[in-house]
Design a binder for these strands. Structure first.
Lengths: 226, 226
DNA sequence: CCAAAGAATATTGAATTCATAATATTTTTT
DNA sequence: AAAAAATATTATGAATTCAATATTCTTTGG
């Protein structure tokens, strides 16, 4: 039962702007010019402005009354807050997943897990991340809570700019893999409480990585013009 | 430092529509006519449509391409999902609050707690709910996580229609008050883990109340036209 | 009388236009 | 020459207009 995705112009535009932000083509704190984007996308201001309203609600940009929009600055505090939330949600997904997940789904995740280990051993960072993402997504799906998945996806969007940094150190990487070993064990025992706990701690490590990567700008800079 | 609240027309309209939904003046599943609401609010379609986009993102309505908007139906499943999420967020707020809360804030919450007990003893349901809400809000504020507060507020909005049912039984009410006693104790001990646990369980009880109140329509009805 | 096809109507999607507020530029004054 | 005031320009907020799609009503054939 695949969801029919509605393709409104405003939604299309919102996604495209989201991509621009994610890939840094629209810099943090940068003023968003309506006219400029209208010409870029070849649409009128009406759907573009609707897209901006949506993006503001989703937390990617902020609207200043009568003064347009700008890309939100990711301060360390904001990223930390977001990761705390994501950790709580991942924890919940783990608890729920253990209640509802089928044996077949566990087997699928086990396969993904083994695949991920191979990529780890071969030091294939990008494919490792991809399979890693699939594992977490599978657990989220097993939670059978659409809203949870939606919220997690939203939070993920907000910090996508700093995630999956290439500067991951060996120490953190091996720790992450160890976390995943424990996760698999907890999942196969269907120990929700434990899986939840592991998932929470796992994400905390990711925050440390993001921090160390130095992708996040200094708070003092950001607070000044916020 | 109080936040300057921007008053755009679209935001105003979105809030008004939100109120209509909350108070049942726009029924679940009801089709939303743009023209009708335009006339009601005395605004043009542009800001109204922007408001609809935002409300859809916030999860209060759903947009059907080329077929307008309608109020989301609250199925039991949706409410359960929402409460699970809120419970996780409340749990997180408890853990964080214990890390950051000041003695003065704890004292404030203690005062609110005592006030709530008085309303409980006097069987003043509305004022009891109001103070109850203030306590939970104070703990959320003490978490020092703006995003958490924002997300919680959003989730709360979604299920406002079924919350605070007047049909609360004596059993559940006394259980809730007992929960609050335990919460105060955990908070004053600054035991984050414990407070988080209590807050999670506390909200589960609320779901039972909402369910028993019978405000939520049967899923089978809702699934049919979703 | 019922069903299907087509016309008429109403509603939504998007572009354009008008109004107003913010910003940049020029002019004036000291 | 620098600061302040006035004006011009630009960008945003909102209403209107035009186009595309859905819905309803009417007609026609079985």
């Amino acid at each position: 039962m695949t969801k029919i995705l509605q393709r409104n112009l405003y939604r299309e535009v919102a996604d495209r702007i989201g991509d621009l932000i994610e890939h840094g083509e629209l810099a943090p704190g940068e003023r968003i010019s309506e006219k400029q984007l209208c010409e870029k996308f070849g649409v009128s201001r009406t759907p573009l402005r609707e897209a901006l309203k949506v993006l503001a609600t989703e937390g990617l940009i902020e609207l200043l009354p009568n003064r347009g929009a700008r890309v939100v600055r990711l301060t360390f505090k904001k990223v930390k807050d977001t990761y705390d939330l994501m950790a709580a949600l991942e924890g919940l997904s783990g608890e729920l997943a253990c209640q509802y997940i089928s044996d077949a789904e566990i087997a699928d995740i086990r396969r993904l897990h083994e695949e991920m280990l191979t990529h780890y051993r071969n030091r294939e960072l990008m494919t490792y991340f991809e399979v890693n993402r699939q594992i977490h997504e599978s657990i989220l799906a097993a939670s059978r809570n659409d809203l949870l998945q939606e919220m997690y996806s939203n939070l993920s969007q907000r910090v996508k700019r700093v995630r999956y940094s290439k500067k991951m150190t060996q120490t953190f990487w091996s720790q992450a893999v160890q976390d995943h070993e424990n996760m698999m064990a907890a999942l196969e025992k269907r120990d929700g409480r434990l899986l939840g706990q592991i998932l929470r701690d796992h994400l905390c490590n990711k925050l440390e990585v993001a921090t160390l990567a130095g992708v996040i700008e200094d708070d003092r800079l950001s607070v000044a013009n916020s």
